[in-house]
Design a protein around this nucleic acid. Sequence first.
DNA 1: AATGAATGAGCTTTCATTCAT
DNA 2: AATGAATGAAAGCTCATTCAT
Lengths: 203, 203, 203, 203
Amino acid sequence: MADVGTAPRTETGADLRRAILDHTRHLLVTGGYDGLSMRKIARGVGCSATSIYLHFESKDALTHALIDEGMRKLYEALSAEEGATPPRRLEALCQAYVRFGLANPEYYQVMFQLHPERMARYPPEDYRRARRNVELFAETLEEGAASGDLRVAATPDVAAHALWTALHGLVSLLLAERVDVRVAGDDFIDAAIGQALAAFEAR
Amino acid sequence: MADVGTAPRTETGADLRRAILDHTRHLLVTGGYDGLSMRKIARGVGCSATSIYLHFESKDALTHALIDEGMRKLYEALSAEEGATPPRRLEALCQAYVRFGLANPEYYQVMFQLHPERMARYPPEDYRRARRNVELFAETLEEGAASGDLRVAATPDVAAHALWTALHGLVSLLLAERVDVRVAGDDFIDAAIGQALAAFEAR
Amino acid sequence: MADVGTAPRTETGADLRRAILDHTRHLLVTGGYDGLSMRKIARGVGCSATSIYLHFESKDALTHALIDEGMRKLYEALSAEEGATPPRRLEALCQAYVRFGLANPEYYQVMFQLHPERMARYPPEDYRRARRNVELFAETLEEGAASGDLRVAATPDVAAHALWTALHGLVSLLLAERVDVRVAGDDFIDAAIGQALAAFEAR
Amino acid sequence: MADVGTAPRTETGADLRRAILDHTRHLLVTGGYDGLSMRKIARGVGCSATSIYLHFESKDALTHALIDEGMRKLYEALSAEEGATPPRRLEALCQAYVRFGLANPEYYQVMFQLHPERMARYPPEDYRRARRNVELFAETLEEGAASGDLRVAATPDVAAHALWTALHGLVSLLLAERVDVRVAGDDFIDAAIGQALAAFEAR
DNA sequence: AATGAATGAGCTTTCATTCAT
DNA sequence: AATGAATGAAAGCTCATTCAT
């Protein structure tokens, strides 16, 4: 409540950091990672290009911060999903994942479609946090395998990663607008998720 | 046959065109599309940047030529797959697709991971040719559905596209080196393909 | 008559020379001298850029040819003007000059608005031919002075040149679209010519 | 006075802006607008090409700034002219105009000889300022017409523009070195101005 | 008479980053 | 905490011209 009435015209301090991150996300939707530039960000948030360096060591660091933020948000979204049984929970996870990707194309882009060289410098600590997302899938698969509700042919970790690749393909091709317009649609998404889950159906 | 062994120091004519395409592919693996520049290509093939424009109208046109070439090669690879039964053929198609992607990361990148804005200018004629690749999957699914060997819940076209997204996710995450090293491996690929195909198993 | 029916798709020989000159004029209207390029000309006439050099030694030479052609045409236009008396003839000359300039902006541009450095290499022989145009004015002034019909304060040559500068200012500002739209119009042209001629009115 | 003699090796801040404008003017005399390039300017003032963009948004903006500066200077020069009577003032204006043009060929060039397309983007506000110059002529004509000291056949605005075109023709052909050397000279200028003014002589 | 291939120099503009203030 | 000034490198692309064929 203390802040009421003190809205500065141009953000400063922690607000500026926030504004930078937000505008960067905005630019990512429009022009992709390559269309991103420090000057454009600065112009957008109304500060100087130099000021960005007060909050982020480099363009890489800024990108990494954004990735980490996205990974945390994804984790939040996935953890919120519950389900009475492992199969239900698994489906909920898949749907939440796809929903998150389509709803947050900027995050998704930097999170999963950055050039490996750029990711090579990603901080290990952040990486560990990112990995938790697949682990949610793995845990559910493990539970389901134990209870007999899910058929898991490989190890839970392998199966979870394989499932993830399928979901990622769906999201990324939709975001890239590469799925033929005659095919894309809500039904298509359901069909694709359905196909990805079929492997785990206990018979 | 007289020319065998007389490789010219600098390529000329049609050879130069070929050399440009080849070196562009090489650069794509290293630095991605954004790391690509006309000058780098020229430096690599040993000609002037200007000369590239004798063979390709623009960077876009060069890229499109590469995409089309990749799409044709993929089609060749997929068409070569045969199989006694639809299920066998379907599996062969999937394996061929993944094999192609992993073996030709440069092609794969420009073929399927280019920014949509860049693809907006892709020639319709080329687009039609590109679409044939998914159609190979659709045709097999249709046959399998007819013969009862494959369970196809959606229309063949939708199912084929959904299968394609799964395969694409697998290939693209592997190429991006985003699958955890503890998981990635030949077994992982088989597992992922297996999961993608499970949906079509007649029970 | 031998040529009837043998219209080649792309001009050759003397025809090509003609086509080059014509298309160059066309380009001059659109983009000015600076927007002119050998390649654009070639593209326009449907020949290779190299072929232009078979007919013109350089871009300069091509330009000079165009200037000379324009000067000849202007001379034709001016010589055609007759008039019962020197004042009538003088007015007719002025109107013909302005008419020519406005009707042939491409010619006019290269004839009188080229950078002096570019004109430094203009062939002396051509220069002599160009000078005949002002001389037509001078001759009329001289006659008028002799007959008492025209008041000529300076030498006929000086007076003719001064008159020419006035006409040139009119034409060039109209072509450059620099005369305010609220002012420009047929009346404006008549008024300007009238003002330029007032100096010679015998009182 | 302390700074006298301590000219910095490379200009900075507002000085750089000034230096850019000045060197641009210098280059305009030598090579015309088309010979102008950001790199040449940078080389001339001893800064990087990039730095120019800190002071001017684009080449267009730089040019426009120069035009506006020239228009202001011309206005200063013209306003300074006084004269006991309208005819005297009119003559003084004409002489000042021509003097300004010949003394400032760089300004004159960009002010009045730029390609219309380039002028299309000229800011309306600047345009209004530019128009004041002709208005000075129009006002004097109006006064003279009212007092009966000047014969003004057309509206003052039209007459002023017509007079301007004559003066412009004189200046531009002299700057372009297109007036025959046997004719050009101080007498020629006086003769030309005299001819242009004759139209307004009350009889 | 005509061409395709080739080039070096040049263009305007944008980039991530640094430094003094 | 924030900025303005500055930069070298690089981008895609066009230019007039030459040369071998």
